[in-house]
């Protein structure tokens, strides 16, 4: 029964793996790559926000730390990018652990927690701006050296398969979380923290684990970003943009669902591309659009698109003849 829970992930990944065969345009390829990258970042947010119920407004803190960690480790220490990626994920987890330890120790919840994460992302942005180690405001450039051993590829297709593998990993991890005690405890905290405590859940530890996992995963998205663009500056890496994307993607797709971030990312960036075509890339317009989308989603579809699909499926089920319903119940029993 548990193995069957991975079938949908297998099919989805297989379909996504076949996509490059049908795509020749470099632009479309880039759209797919970035959609997957934001799906990964959104999944990171989803673990902490969708499952554990701790809404972060500063996931750029983890994304940017991962990005800067891999860049600086390569530039200053000459570390291999693949090794640097592992280290960068550890850094992301560490940043998550520090923010989590501080805010959860002092029982910050809801909007207070969101504000703290936002503040940390901003502080890190300023630090990256002033520090020579990170290249300051001018940013940091990684020399072009396209070799697989160097996590740089000539072909967009290879980048696509790398990010697809990372997304597949995040889907499997999230599904495994759903079937685990940790996942059950995270949901319990999301639903009612006092009840969770009364039932023996060490809420501090569970929330801390969630934010460390989330931080490491968001950092991996930052690593990928760095490797594909080979350039970072504080305004990009720690910018509010990534924080907003990180939460918008799972909210649109469906918080607390395995596929929410993936669905949300493709829909969000699809809409984004269409608007760009129609309006000719007016600056800031996409942020206005994101804001409007966020309001609409939270007002009318708080469960996101995955929730909408579930509702439609149930409605379709009710329209079936009653006989079928009875048979199904008998089968379930």
């Amino acid at each position: 029964m548990m193995a069957g829970r991975y079938t949908a992930i297998g099919i989805t990944v297989a379909v996504l793996a076949a996509l490059p065969l049908a795509v020749t345009s470099n632009e479309v390829m880039m759209f797919l790559i970035l959609s997957l990258m934001f799906a990964l970042l959104g999944q990171a947010w989803n673990i902490l926000g969708g499952y554990a119920g701790q809404f972060s407004f500063g996931h750029a803190a983890f994304f940017g730390s991962g990005a800067y960690a891999t860049a600086t480790l390569q530039i200053h220490l000459g570390l291999n990018p693949w090794v640097a990626m592992v280290a960068a994920m550890a850094v992301g987890g560490l940043v998550g652990g520090l923010i989590g330890a501080l805010s959860f120790r002092f029982r910050l919840r809801g909007s207070y927690f969101a504000l703290i994460t936002l503040a940390f992302a901003e502080v890190l942005r300023v630090v990256a701006h002033t520090s020579d180690f990170t290249g300051g405001g001018a940013g940091i450039l990684i020399p072009l050296d396209e070799r697989a051993a160097n996590f740089q590829f000539e072909s967009r297709d290879v980048f696509y398969y790398v990010i697809l593998a990372m997304v597949a990993g995040s889907l499997v991890l999230t599904r495994a979380l759903e079937d685990s005690r940790l996942g059950a405890w995270m949901l319990a905290i999301r639903e009612n923290e006092d009840s969770a405590r009364a039932l023996g859940v060490d809420t501090f530890r569970v929330k801390l684990t969630a934010i460390i996992l989330s931080g490491a995963m968001a950092a991996s998205a930052g690593v990928f970003y760095t490797q594909i663009f080979l350039y970072l500056d504080p305004g990009i890496a720690y910018g509010v943009g990534f924080s907003v994307e990180a939460l918008l993607v799972p909210i649109i797709g469906g918080m607390g669902t395995v596929f929410g971030p993936l669905v949300g990312s493709f829909v969000l960036h699809g809409v984004d591309e269409v608007t760009k075509e129609l309006t000719g890339d007016a600056p800031g317009l996409n942020l206005a659009l994101y804001g409007a989308l966020l309001i609409v989603m939270l007002r009318f579809l708080p469960d996101g698109l995955m929730g909408l699909m579930g509702r439609l499926r149930r409605a379709a089920g009710r329209r079936q003849p009653q006989q079928a319903g009875r048979l199904k119940e008998a089968g379930d029993a």
Partner: peptide, 25 residues
């Protein structure tokens, strides 16, 4: 273990999932 006077269920979870949170201890 204590219960709450004002009941505090995990609203969006099923009865089974609610009880399983306790069982996980």
């Amino acid at each position: 273990v204590r219960t709450f006077q004002v009941v505090q269920p995990f609203g969006r979870l099923t009865v089974r999932e609610n009880i399983a949170v306790g069982a996980h201890l």
